[in-house]
């Protein structure tokens, strides 16, 4: 048990150190999401009512699309540096490799959100700094990185990878995005836990289902 956690952390930390050095993924994700948000500030007339209506949807659509650009990089570096073979040769089981990579992606998208959400609050004039938002972000990021890591590993060898990953990833995460948008919608309307409970439960179910299934299924991806 303890060893498994150590392995996951080692892989996650490796990605984290790389990221701290070159800052590829976080800058790409946060930059893309910020662009989406700022385009919408003039694409839609943002009075108070409109901002509450379209804000949550724009925020999560932006994060989902930006997340794809970051996830594209996640395994590209491993393949370019031929380090994926090294990981596969290591005496660790495949599901731990998956969980380690998912941990890295989780941290990247999470940090990007720390930049994007304050910007969202400013651009859309909405009050989102509440505990509920923290939980929504955690659950959504967990699901996005769980599914995203699996599909990124699959599409890394596909021709036209940049096209293939979003086509696979976005339809599958739709229920999670619905949950995030709806709970954020309740939040900006000043409602609390009770109203968003069902959506948060759905997000938890999604996260658990895809973390477990992806960990089990990952052995079929890294198999030669």
């Amino acid at each position: 048990m303890k060893d498994s956690l150590a392995v996951i952390w080692a892989i996650g930390r490796k990605d984290l150190l790389l990221e701290i050095r070159n800052k590829d993924v976080v800058v790409a994700v946060a930059g893309f999401a910020l662009l989406v948000l700022s385009i919408f500030t003039f694409a839609v007339d943002l009075n108070q009512a409109n901002a509450k209506l379209v804000g949550p949807g724009v925020l999560w659509a932006g994060i989902a699309f930006a997340g794809v650009t970051g996830l594209n990089r996640a395994f590209a570096l491993e393949v370019e540096g031929n380090t994926l073979e090294a990981l596969m040769l290591a005496p660790i089981s495949r599901d731990l490799i998956y969980l380690g990579k998912a941990l890295g992606n989780f941290l990247f998208i999470w940090v990007a959100q720390l930049i994007v959400i304050p910007a969202f609050a400013v651009l859309f004039n909405l009050i989102v700094f509440r505990w509920e938002m923290l939980v929504i972000c955690l659950l959504a990021t967990l699901g996005l990185s769980a599914v995203g890591t699996l599909f990124a590993a699959m599409s890394v060898r596909v021709r036209a990878r940049e096209v293939m990953l979003p086509l696979l990833f976005l339809p599958v995460v739709t229920p999670l995005l619905m949950a995030a948008v709806e709970s954020t919608g309740h939040l900006v309307h000043g409602r609390s836990w009770g109203d968003m409970a069902q959506w948060l439960q759905l997000a938890v179910a999604f996260d658990v289902a895809f973390l477990v299934v992806s960990a089990f299924i990952f052995q079929h991806i890294l198999e030669d």
Partner: peptide, 14 residues
């Protein structure tokens, strides 16, 4: 040969 599914995931999955 290391098993493909670690005890961590295997035990908690159910």
């Amino acid at each position: 040969m290391q098993s493909r599914i670690s005890p961590l995931v295997g035990r908690t999955a159910l």
